[in-house]
Amino acid sequence: MAPIIELERVAKTFAVRHRAGRLRRQRHEVHAVDDVSFTVDPGAMVGYIGPNGAGKSTTVKMLIGILLPSRGTVRVDGRDPSRHRIAVASRIGVVFGQRTQLWWDLPLIDSFALLRHVFRVPAARHAATLATLVDLLGLGPFLATPVRQLSLGQRMRGELAAALLHEPPILFLDEPTIGLDLVAKEAVRSFLAHRNREAGTTVLLTTHDLVDVERLCDRILIIDRGRVIEDGTVDGIKARYGTERTLVVDLEAPLPPVAIEGAAVLRVEGPRQWLRFHRDAHTAADLIARVAALAPVRDVAIEEPAIEDVVRHIYGR
């Protein structure tokens, strides 16, 4: 299966001019994206994450044809998006979490009608797609409301529908859950998962909310200082970096912190104790056995590292 997104040794350099003295202006180069190569197969859901200024948005802008790469080649659906901007535009859907693509002062339904003409979708086809999207995203109650009066969650659902009306095989999302409350975030996530599963839409999303990634993505790409520093599955990255797990034990009676080599007691709360241990130092079974040898145990639980902690650890290197 040929990849649907391909980047090969892509770099993007911006020239920044700033004043140095009275008249002299100094020019220096900022490498927003330094050397990025990856491919995405059709139907994949990829989380593209990294700290602010790491080059996430710049990469996405090159993929959607807004920015020309300084070096390297970019292909989206087999075409160079900077040279075939218009052809690529009808094969992709784009959602910017922080800016609206909808017509601010018009009822939501009007934006959809206008986009139908912009993307030249035949009327019957449009009606069918729209009906499906309205149903899935629950847009019915506010289709006639002007976009400026929608809540952020409602608007974001509208943005998703707008981006998918022309049924693009690829969807780019730049922070689609930013600022949303938990219910709205969940609505966006389950819609994306459904869309990916049912329509086979390839999704590439940038986000700061790692729950998005954990819930949705079969693959994470971590970018830092313009380079991809990690590429793998969520579980794989956790296993590699999340080497510290926590054992929560409920003892029969409150006791002082248990002393076991290779495990540190983080907290004690009545009969409950939290022990942090290294994956390589103990297996969970081994550690439980050791605790049980010291005191009667009523219950145990293992806490796996949260993806947030793993990523914080990776960024911090």
Partner: peptide
Amino acid sequence: DHFLVRPL
């Protein structure tokens, strides 16, 4: 940017 991601 929005103008650039539409086929017009």
